[in-house]
Nucleic acid binder design. Structure first.
Ligand SMILES: [Zn+2]
Ligand SMILES: [Zn+2]
Lengths: 584, 584
DNA sequence: TAATGGGTGCACT
DNA sequence: AAGTGCACCCATT
C-alpha cells in the first residue's frame, strides 16, 4: 500500500493537471441538477493550472477606470465588463501524466489497467495517409465496444473520441416553479453529449516519421458495447469492402454474429495487424488455476519456416468448443437485461474538460438496488493451456464485459480507483451500492513490457526495432475488459461462444497466441520477481522483433489483416449472482 | 401606450416561445457568476413550449422499477439512472412568432425594431446555388456589424449565425476558496462561445421555387462592430474577387477604410442587389428638420432610359463633404474609448437558444459610471434633402452605432424595449446607469410596407412581382443602427465621413437613393395617418416593381452588385454629452 | 425541395 | 481533450 500511495499522489497530481481551473463552488443547487451533466473536477488549491487570470465578466457595470491601450480594440462594451482579449489556454496537460505502453493486441488489458495513464500503442503500421488510421483503430476498438469517431484532425494529428451517444438533453429542476418571469433567474444545464473523456491521439512524429498513437483519457462516461448497427461500423465495413480486406470482413462478420446473438465478444478475434501480436486476449475459457504465468513464443508461419502444427490443432479444438457453445448459448438468447455497470474514470472526482462536456461523477446512489455483485477477470491463455480449459466446459463463464461491484466478494480484487482518496480505506466495504467500487485499479504496472520503438529506416517498409527497456523477464498479464452484460446474468453455464461456420481459420495464420495469465486471488499482481519463468510460454520480445520486421511489408498500401486464432480464458471469480431483476 | 401594451403582450408571448423549457431556478449563485454567460430565459408558467417531458436524469440511482421493453437496448447502466432513449425536442417554435417583412436595404431599421419578430427578407435574388446565399447576406450584414457564418446547412436550408466571438472562457467564482478537494463541489460555467441567439434562416421553398430568408432571432449577446480583420470578411473579399465583383469590392474598401479610421459606417453604402432597393440608410447627414417624410422614386439607369443627372450631383456634393470630414476626423483618430453600449434583445429577459448558448441579461449595474448619455438617430435621406444637410456641417453628428442611454435627454426617443415590463414606467428616468435603456423599441410597425413576393415564372430570371398589402400610403421609416462608439465621444463636430478617393461613384449607378426620414422629436414615430405626403419623395412600390423585374436578370450567374450612392442623414438629437472619460 | 428544429462528425483555421 | 464552421444527417408535426 505504501508504494501505491506514492503512486496515488503522483497520479492525483497528474489528474489535477487535466483541469484548467479550480472551482470550489459548493452550491447545493447542483444537488437538484442532474449530476450526470455537471462537471465536477477535483478541488485542488495548489493546482498548477489554476487559472488565476480568469476574467471576471459579469453583466453588471463595473467601475472600469483603465483606458484601453489597444488602438484596434476600442469597442469594449460599456455595459459589459471588459471581455478578455486572449483566452487562457492550457497546453501539454498530459505531459506529466504517467505513461504505459501497450501493443494493440495488448490493449484491452491496458485499457483496464491504465485508466488514468497515457497508453501508448507502440507497434503501429506506417500509415500512408491520415485516413488509414481510423480504420486501423476501429479494428481494435470496435472489439472493445468503443465506437470511435474523429473529433478533430489536421495533417499531423488525429484526435479520436467515442461516438456521441444518442442525444440526452436534460434540464435543471426548477427551484421555484411559480416564480414570476421578471424575478427568476433561470439556467439550462449543459448538454451531456460528447461528455465521454476517452480520447485517442494520433500524432505524426516528424523525427520518427511515423504516427504515434496514444490513448489519452482511458475512461468512459457510458457503457461499452459493440453496436453492429452503428453508422461508423457500417462505414467501416464499406471501407473493408473497398479495400478488399476479406479477412477482416470475415472476422467482423463473426463479431457481428456474436453480437446479434448476444454472445460474448472476443476482443482478439480480429488481429490488429500492427506487426507485433504477442498477446492473446480472452476467449472465454475458464481458467481454474491461478498463478499461471507464461507465454508461447510468437511465430509467423509465412516468414518463419519452423511452422508448427499447433496452429491447426488449436483451430480444430476451438472449432469443437464453439460448436458446443453455440448450442449452449442459444438457450440464453432470449434472456435480456437492462442492467449494466458503468466504467468510470474516477470515483468522486470526474475527469472532464472545462468546456461543455461533462462527466458523471459516481456518487453514492442509495436508491440503486444492489442487484449484481459480479467479479470476473479474463486471462490470456496460450495453446498449451487449452487442455486445461477444455476440462472446464461445464463451469460457469464470466465475461468481464464491464466493471462490476466486487465489494461483497471476499475472493475478488477490489478494483477501486487509486485516484480516489476516499476509497483507500473502503476496500473491504460490504456496501455494494457504493458505486465507487466501479473503478478498477490493479497495480500491475511492472507486468507490462515497456518497449521503445525506433524506426530502423525512413522508408515506408515499416521495419521496427524494439528496444527492450528495464526488464526482460516481465510477462504480460492481461485483464480483459469486454462489454456484454447479458452473460453476467444469463449465461452462468456459458463457456464458449460459437464461431460462424463459414470462417476458415486455417487460412494464413500468422500469429500464435501467447499466454499471460496471472493470479487473481491476490490483491496485487505478481511483481517481476515472482515470475514463474515458464520458459515455454514466456514472451520473448527479441523473437517477436524478427516477426515484426518481416510482417509489415505490405502494411502501407492496403489494409491487410492477418488471420489467426486467439485463445483466452475467463477467470471464475466465484461470483455471487443476484438474479432479482432477471427473475422479475 | 395602449396599443403598445397589447403589442407587448403579444410579443412577450412569442418571446416565450423561443424557450423550450421554463427554468425558475432562483439560485443566487448566479450572482457570483458571469451573468454574460448565463442564459436567463423568461419564466413563463404558461409557455406552450415548456418542456414538461424533460428527462430527469440525476446521477443518483433512482428506484427504477419499470422493465425495459426494448430488446435491443439492454445495456442501461446500473449505476446511472436510465438515460432517456429519445430526446425531447421542440419543433416549429417560430411558427407562431409575429412576422415582419423587410427589404434587404430596409434591414437595419427592421433589425432595430423587430427584435423579437421573424424578419422576412422579401426581395431575394434567385440563387442558383446554396453557396450564393452567404455572400449575399454578408453584403447586408457586414454593414450591420454582424459577421455571419453558417451554423448548419443542407440542400434546402442554411442557418446562419453570428461568427463565434473570440473565446472567452470564464469561470465561476468560488464560494469557498479554502474548501478541501474532497468536500467541495465544483462546476465550470458554460462557455460563452456561440451564445449569440441571432439566426438567419434560409430555406428553399419548393412551392415558390425560391429561397426564403428570415431573421429568426434578432438579438445579440455581444456588441456589433464591423471587423475588417475577420476571417469571414477576408474570405468574403476573396469571393468578390473571384467573381469579379469590382463594384462591391470598392464599396467594401470604403467600408474597410472607414472602419480602420474609426469612422462611422454607413450601412447602405453597399446595396444588397436584392432587386428592390427603395430605401437608403443613414449616411451621417445631419437632419435638423424633423417630420420630413418622403422618398424619391427608385430608378434604374441601366434599364430605364430616364437617367437623371441627380446622381452625379449627389456624388459631387458628397465627395466635397467627405473631404471636409476627412480632415475633421483625422483630428480625432487617436482618441479611443473602451466604452460601448451593448445591443440586447430584451432588458430583463434574454433571448437565447436552449442549447449551451447563453445570453447576457441586462440587469442593473450600479457600479457603472453614467458617462455617456447619447441619443442619436440616423435617417434615410433622399437627394432632395442634401441641400439641407449641407447647411449643417458645423453641427455635431451622432452616429447611431449602438444603443444609447437616452433617459436624460428630454428631446429624445426613449428606445426602451417594449418587452420589458419593468421599463414601461421608466421612460423619464434620469438614472442613466440603468442599462435597461439600452434597448430600442419603437413601435412603428405600420411604417414598413408588408410585401408579398410571388414568382411570376419558374425560371431563374428572377422576375419578382410585388403585391402590396394593406396600405399603399405607408412610408418606410428607418432608424439606422451602426456600431462605432468613438464618434459618440470624439466626433462631436463630425459630419460626414470621408470616402476613399479612389472610388469612382460615377460608374454604373443603378439605384437612386430614396428617403424616408421621420420626426425624431416625438416619442412615437409618425403613424401612416400623419404622413406628410411629400409626393416627390414618396416611395412608390409600384414603380419599384418595374425596376425589380428588370434588374434581376443577371443575378443568378454571378455576383454583381450595383453601384450607387446612398445618402442619409443623422438626426441631431441635441444630446447631452458627458466627456468625463474623454477629458480624463 | 412540406416546414421547422436539432445532433454531430470532422477538417479548417 | 485546440474551437468552430459547415454539412450530412435525423426528428417532429
Ligand atoms: Zn467512451
Ligand atoms: Zn450576434
Amino acid at each position: 500500500m505504501n508504494g501505491s500511495n506514492i503512486q496515488l499522489e503522483q497520479d492525483f497530481q497528474d489528474f489535477k493537471s487535466l483541469f484548467k481551473q479550480e472551482n470550489t463552488n459548493n452550491d447545493n443547487r447542483f444537488d437538484l441538477l442532474d449530476l450526470n451533466s455537471i462537471m465536477t473536477p477535483p478541488i485542488s488549491p495548489s493546482t498548477k493550472n489554476s487559472n488565476n487570470n480568469s476574467n471576471n465578466n459579469s453583466n453588471s457595470n463595473s467601475v472600469n477606470g483603465n483606458k484601453e491601450a489597444n488602438v484596434n480594440d476600442n469597442t469594449t462594451a460599456k455595459n459589459i465588463v471588459q471581455l478578455p482579449k486572449k483566452k487562457k489556454k492550457t497546453y501539454n496537460t498530459n505531459k506529466n501524466k504517467p505513461k504505459s505502453y501497450s501493443t494493440p493486441n495488448n490493449l484491452s488489458s491496458a485499457l483496464l489497467k491504465d485508466q488514468n495513464k497515457l497508453i501508448h500503442l507502440d507497434p503501429v503500421p506506417n500509415f500512408n495517409d491520415k485516413s488509414e488510421i481510423k480504420p486501423w483503430l476501429q479494428k481494435i476498438f470496435f472489439l472493445q465496444g468503443i465506437d470511435i469517431v474523429i473529433e478533430r484532425s489536421d495533417s499531423g494529428k488525429v484526435i479520436f473520441k467515442c461516438k456521441s451517444q444518442t442525444p440526452k438533453r436534460r434540464y435543471a429542476k426548477s427551484l421555484n416553479h411559480n416564480a414570476t418571469a421578471a424575478t427568476t433567474t433561470t439556467a439550462t444545464t449543459p448538454l451531456s453529449s460528447s461528455s465521454c473523456p476517452f480520447r485517442i491521439r494520433a500524432t505524426f512524429s516528424l523525427k520518427l516519421k511515423k504516427w504515434n498513437i496514444v490513448v489519452v483519457n482511458n475512461s468512459h462516461s457510458h457503457e461499452l458495447k459493440f453496436n453492429p448497427n452503428s453508422d461508423e461500423y457500417k462505414k467501416f465495413k464499406d471501407y473493408l469492402k473497398t479495400t478488399n480486406d476479406v479477412e477482416t470482413l470475415k472476422r467482423f462478420e463473426e463479431l457481428e454474429y456474436r453480437s446479434k446473438l448476444n454472445l460474448p465478444i472476443n476482443p482478439s478475434i480480429i488481429p490488429c495487424d500492427c506487426g507485433l501480436t504477442s498477446e492473446v486476449q480472452s476467449f472465454n475459457i475458464i481458467l481454474p488455476t491461478s498463478k499461471i504465468c507464461g507465454a508461447t513464443k510468437v511465430q509467423k508461419i509465412n516468414h518463419n519456416n519452423n511452422s508448427n502444427n499447433s496452429n491447426s490443432n488449436l483451430i480444430d479444438s476451438i472449432k469443437n468448443k464453439n460448436k458446443k457453445l453455440k448450442n449452449f448459448n442459444k438457450q440464453n438468447l432470449l434472456k435480456k437485461t437492462t442492467n449494466q455497470n458503468l466504467l468510470l474514470s474516477s470515483s468522486n472526482t470526474s475527469v472532464g474538460t472545462s468546456g461543455n462536456s461533462t462527466l458523471t461523477s459516481t456518487s453514492t446512489s442509495p436508491a440503486s438496488p444492489p442487484s449484481y455483485k459480479d467479479s470476473s477477470l479474463s486471462l490470456s491463455l496460450g495453446s498449451n493451456f487449452l487442455d486445461i480449459s477444455n476440462d472446464l466446459f461445464s463451469q460457469p463463464i464470466l465475461t468481464p464485459d464491464f466493471m462490476q461491484d466486487l465489494t461483497n466478494n471476499t475472493n475478488t480484487i477490489n478494483y477501486q480507483n487509486a485516484f480516489d482518496p476516499q476509497m483507500n480505506n473502503k476496500q473491504n466495504s460490504t456496501n455494494s451500492t457504493d458505486v465507487k467500487t466501479d473503478l478498477f485499479e490493479i497495480d500491475f504496472t511492472d507486468i507490462f513490457n515497456k518497449t521503445n520503438m525506433t524506426s530502423t529506416n525512413n522508408n515506408n517498409r515499416g521495419d521496427f526495432k524494439y528496444i527492450k527497456s528495464n526488464n526482460q523477464n516481465k510477462n504480460d498479464n492481461i485483464i480483459n475488459y469486454l462489454n456484454d452484460p447479458n452473460l453476467i446474468e444469463n449465461s452462468s453455464a456459458l463457456l464458449f461462444s460459437p464461431l460462424p461456420d463459414e470462417i476458415d481459420y486455417t487460412s494464413n495464420n500468422l500469429f500464435l497466441p501467447s499466454v499471460t495469465p496471472f493470479s487473481s486471488d491476490t490483491k496485487r499482481i505478481p511483481s517481476p520477481n515472482n515470475n514463474n519463468n515458464n520458459s515455454t510460454t514466456t514472451t520473448n520480445l527479441a523473437d517477436t522483433n524478427i516477426f515484426v520486421g518481416s510482417s509489415t511489408d505490405d502494411l502501407n498500401n492496403q489494409w491487410h489483416f492477418d488471420s489467426n486464432l486467439n485463445l483466452a480464458s475467463i477467470d471464475n471469480e466465484q461470483t455471487e449472482y443476484d438474479f432479482t431483476d432477471f427473475l422479475k
